[in-house]
Computed example of a mutant assay.
Amino acid sequence: MTDATSRDGSRSGSTAQPVGGAKGPDELRRQIEETRGQLGDTVEELAGKADVKGRAKARAADLKDKAGAMSVQLRSSAAHAGHTVQDKAGRAGHSVQDKAGRAGHGAHDTAGRAGFGHPRAVLAAGVAVGAVAAAGLVRRRRHGHC
């Protein structure tokens, strides 16, 4: 709105004085400087909010940092899990090896008591049984008995 002067010299419309009114030129200058400072802060805030590209870059950098940290954490967890599995597999392998060794010794002892005193004799007997079984299978297939 513009100020208008009536015929009697009184003013109507908006006034240059704030609601509280300045008590002199120095007070008015101080209020103007204060308002300029507030306006500058407001303009900066609005410019920051309007800078979509800048905000997107900042958000992308933040997400990249979080992803990098998560990647390091996942690698550490995977390495730990790998070591755990490797340790368990090693213990299981040793356990199976021990049991197989005990079973082999038991079979050797049993073969010795059964009259197969030498491992070669046990091997020869196994080969003979396998050959008989294979010959039987070949004969059945040739005669059409699958």
Rank of each mutant, 00 (worst) to 15 (best):
1 M>D: 13
1 M>L: 13
2 T>K: 15
2 T>M: 15
2 T>H: 15
3 D>K: 14
4 A>G: 11
6 S>D: 13
7 R>T: 13
8 D>L: 03
8 D>H: 03
9 G>V: 00
11 R>L: 13
13 G>N: 03
13 G>T: 01
13 G>W: 00
14 S>F: 14
16 A>F: 09
16 A>S: 14
17 Q>W: 11
18 P>K: 05
18 P>A: 04
20 G>Q: 09
20 G>A: 13
20 G>C: 08
21 G>E: 00
22 A>K: 00
22 A>L: 01
25 P>I: 04
26 D>L: 11
29 R>Q: 09
29 R>D: 09
30 R>I: 05
33 E>H: 05
33 E>N: 06
36 R>P: 03
39 L>A: 13
41 D>R: 02
41 D>P: 00
41 D>K: 03
42 T>K: 15
42 T>V: 13
43 V>L: 08
45 E>L: 08
46 L>I: 06
48 G>I: 05
49 K>P: 00
51 D>Q: 05
52 V>R: 03
52 V>I: 06
53 K>T: 08
54 G>A: 11
55 R>T: 03
57 K>M: 08
59 R>Q: 14
59 R>S: 10
60 A>C: 06
61 A>Y: 04
61 A>H: 08
62 D>T: 07
63 L>P: 00
65 D>M: 10
65 D>Q: 10
67 A>C: 10
67 A>E: 06
70 M>P: 04
71 S>E: 12
71 S>M: 09
72 V>R: 13
72 V>H: 12
74 L>S: 15
75 R>F: 06
76 S>T: 08
77 S>P: 05
77 S>H: 13
78 A>G: 14
78 A>V: 14
79 A>E: 15
81 A>G: 09
81 A>L: 08
83 H>Q: 14
86 Q>C: 09
88 K>V: 07
89 A>N: 07
91 R>E: 09
92 A>Q: 06
93 G>K: 04
93 G>D: 05
94 H>T: 04
95 S>K: 06
98 D>S: 10
98 D>F: 04
99 K>G: 01
99 K>D: 06
99 K>R: 14
100 A>T: 07
103 A>Y: 02
103 A>D: 03
104 G>L: 03
104 G>Y: 01
108 H>E: 05
109 D>I: 02
109 D>R: 06
111 A>D: 01
112 G>I: 01
114 A>E: 01
114 A>M: 03
115 G>E: 03
116 F>D: 00
117 G>L: 11
117 G>W: 04
117 G>M: 05
118 H>L: 07
118 H>S: 08
119 P>I: 00
120 R>M: 07
123 L>F: 06
123 L>G: 10
124 A>W: 01
125 A>Y: 01
126 G>A: 14
126 G>S: 15
126 G>L: 13
129 V>Y: 12
129 V>C: 08
130 G>W: 08
131 A>P: 01
131 A>K: 12
133 A>V: 06
138 V>C: 03
138 V>T: 07
138 V>S: 02
139 R>T: 07
142 R>C: 11
143 H>R: 10
143 H>M: 11
144 G>T: 02
145 H>P: 00
146 C>T: 13
